[in-house]
């Protein structure tokens, strides 16, 4: 450091005292604070409990959280929880499996064949915005009032978003990998099975996340018609009886179901996509 200016005392005296450079690179970096989420829930519950007990929240507006918990306990003890949950899970499983597997198949076809794409993309775009609930009466005529119409509604609801997510994912598969496959003379079937499908898997799975959330939403709609048991039927019944405790207990079960489905997909993603 032989810079003459640095050692020049005259120069030094005329410049202001050295100052630390201010740090301005903070924020915009997401960090994990899991406990805050739990705390928000806890505070909301505590507020609701306090408010309803003190009376500044009327019992018409919100049920006591502890009563909801009690209702849930009764539901569990009576064995009805399982009666409702088992039929709902079956409907969800069968409907979503039908819709998602059909959706993936059609989405892959659209991604691979330009004729299929030309034919089916407009059709999918036309089907996507239809509120599936509006078609429920029609499904009852087509598939019967029992399980058929419920499977169909959930399947139809999961089908379109899965198709869109799948062909988008297939489109996004790295073309250079496909070209590599061709350059090694891999058969068409091998390229689809070993390159296109695994390459599209991240997109398909994130599409499934949305599709399955839609399936849970549609579960309530599906159980509007002719369902004696099921979480959706339980919620609708509670609504018509203006039984807020049961309503909230049912809604909480749906939320938990959503969290469960989301974490199952998370596990599948971690197992299938550990290469990312």
């Amino acid at each position: 450091m032989s810079d003459p200016k640095m050692s020049d005392p005259n120069h030094q005296s005329s410049s202001p005292a050295p100052r630390q450079v201010t740090f301005r690179g903070g924020g915009f970096a997401p960090a994990s604070h899991r406990w805050i989420g739990v705390a928000v829930f806890a505070i909301l519950f505590a507020l609701a409990e306090l408010g309803t007990r003190q009376g500044w929240i009327s019992p018409l507006t919100l049920p006591l959280p502890s009563d909801v918990l009690g209702t849930f306990g009764e539901l569990y003890a009576s064995g009805l929880l399982w009666a409702h949950l088992s039929v709902s899970l079956t409907r969800l499983l069968v409907g979503a499996a039908l819709g998602a597997s059909l959706g993936i198949a059609v989405g892959v076809m659209i991604g691979l064949f330009s004729y299929v794409r030309a034919g089916l993309v407009p059709l999918t775009a036309a089907l996507f915005p239809i509120p599936k609930i509006a078609l429920l009466p029609l499904f009852v005529i087509w598939f019967g009032i029992d399980e058929g119409s419920k499977y169909a509604l959930i399947a139809f609801g999961t089908f379109t978003p899965t198709v869109v997510a799948t062909y988008g994912a297939v489109d996004n598969v790295d073309r250079s990998l496909i070209r590599m496959g061709q350059s090694f003379n891999l058969s068409w079937f091998s390229i689809v099975r070993k390159i296109v499908l695994p390459g599209a898997m991240p997109g398909i799975l994130s599409g499934l996340r949305i599709s399955l959330a839609i399936a849970i939403i549609l579960l309530v709609a599906a159980e509007m018609l002719g369902a004696e048991y099921g979480i959706g039927a339980y919620i609708l019944e509670a609504g018509s009886l203006y039984d807020l405790e049961r309503l909230f207990a049912g809604v909480a079960i749906l939320s938990l179901l959503g969290v469960a489905v989301s974490s199952v997909i998370g596990i599948v993603e971690r197992r299938l996509l550990d290469w990312r």
């Binding site: 250079s176 990998l177 070209r179 590599m180 070993k194 390159i195 695994p198 390459g199 898997m201 996509l273 290469w275 990312r276």
Partner: peptide, 10 residues
Amino acid sequence: FQDFALLPWR
């Protein structure tokens, strides 16, 4: 290839 073209999942 320039970009290696390895399948990341294998």
